[in-house]
């Protein structure tokens, strides 16, 4: 039952993605509003699912990979809804909706590890804070990556002087670069706070700030990558295509840190299904 809402949300996200896809391919046949409305419906179901999980586990629902992925998808759509006020271009939805569908789909696929944590070390407020901040940071990185992908496409159209229907649909380069300019520093800041809070919590739980498990190493790599991107922009005005590519690479690393580690590598972040008994799944 507790996955019912999440599964329905996945279906609606997929329908929303389909609506957007038809709109992108044959714009005159269908209005982008269809995709948007379906996505909003999915978002509502998704919110219900998170709420339900919170009540069900009597805890902030963040302690399994399922919950983390689901919340991540939720944040992506939330950012989309906020973004819509600034630039109502439907193309953001056309990318965000399938992304949420994939994230929630993965969340459902991982659902056999659904038991809430029993380890007492995890029953503290440091954990939800750490995980929540990390996920919001990833949400901003995702936004930057979406904008980056569109930037690379739009720029290649303009440079190659082929101005087709996609060119008309995509927002201006400056808008896309602005998203990158704002989202990456915000994400970087949140990521830093999340890492520090994780360290403090680790110290309380295990007595060590840092234990060099794979997720921690990758987190550090991600942190340095974004640090370089932020520094480059403020110091040298590095922007445009380079910044867009950096946002994509950074986000690929984020996804790997988030999911790949749990599947292929071990460590105490690997969660209930992983090798460690004390894991959180994030």
């Amino acid at each position: 039952m507790d996955l019912f809402f999440l599964k329905s949300a996945v279906i609606f996200y997929l329908l929303g993605s389909l609506g957007y896809l038809v709109f992108v391919l044959i714009p005159s046949r269908i209005k982008p509003l269809w995709g948007f409305m379906l996505t909003v419906a999915a978002f509502a179901l998704h919110s219900l699912s998170i709420l339900h999980r919170a009540i069900f586990s009597q805890y902030f629902p963040l302690t399994t990979l399922t919950d983390a992925l689901s919340l991540f998808g939720w944040i992506v759509i939330l950012l989309l809804l906020v973004m819509r006020h600034r630039d109502p271009s439907p193309i953001f939805g056309a990318i965000a909706a399938p992304m949420a569908a994939v994230l929630c789909g993965l969340a459902v696929a991982f659902s056999y590890r659904i038991a809430p944590p029993t380890a007492p070390v995890l029953r503290t407020w440091w954990l939800p804070m750490h995980v929540f901040l990390a996920l919001v940071a990833y949400g901003f990185f995702a936004l930057a990556a979406i904008a980056g992908m569109m930037y690379i496409l739009q720029e290649s159209f303009i440079k190659a002087k082929r101005l087709g229907p996609m060119y008309r649909l995509l927002p201006s380069l400056i808008t896309l670069d602005d998203i990158n300019r704002l989202a990456i520093p915000i994400g970087f800041f949140l990521h830093t706070v999340a890492t520090v809070s994780g360290m403090l919590w680790a110290h309380r739980a295990w007595g060590a700030y840092w234990s060099w498990d794979p997720k921690e190493i990758l987190t550090l790599v991600t942190w340095f990558l974004y640090a370089i991107v932020v520094y480059q922009r403020f110091r040298f005005g590095s922007r445009g295509r380079k910044a867009a590519i950096a946002a994509l690479i950074g986000f690929a690393l984020v996804i790997f840190t988030m999911i790949g580690v749990n599947l292929f590598l071990g460590g105490h972040h690997a969660g209930i299904g992983g090798t460690s008994f004390r894991g959180s799944g994030i």
């Binding site: 714009p27 005159s28 739009q154 303009i158 229907p165 060119y167 201006s172 380069l173 400056i174």
Partner: peptide, 21 residues
């Protein structure tokens, strides 16, 4: 989409400028 795209050189240039800047 009859009015979607610019059909004069000047309009194309202005449209492009807006898409870039």
């Amino acid at each position: 989409d009859i009015g979607a795209s610019a059909v004069s050189v000047a309009c194309v240039a202005i449209d492009l400028a807006k898409k870039i800047l």
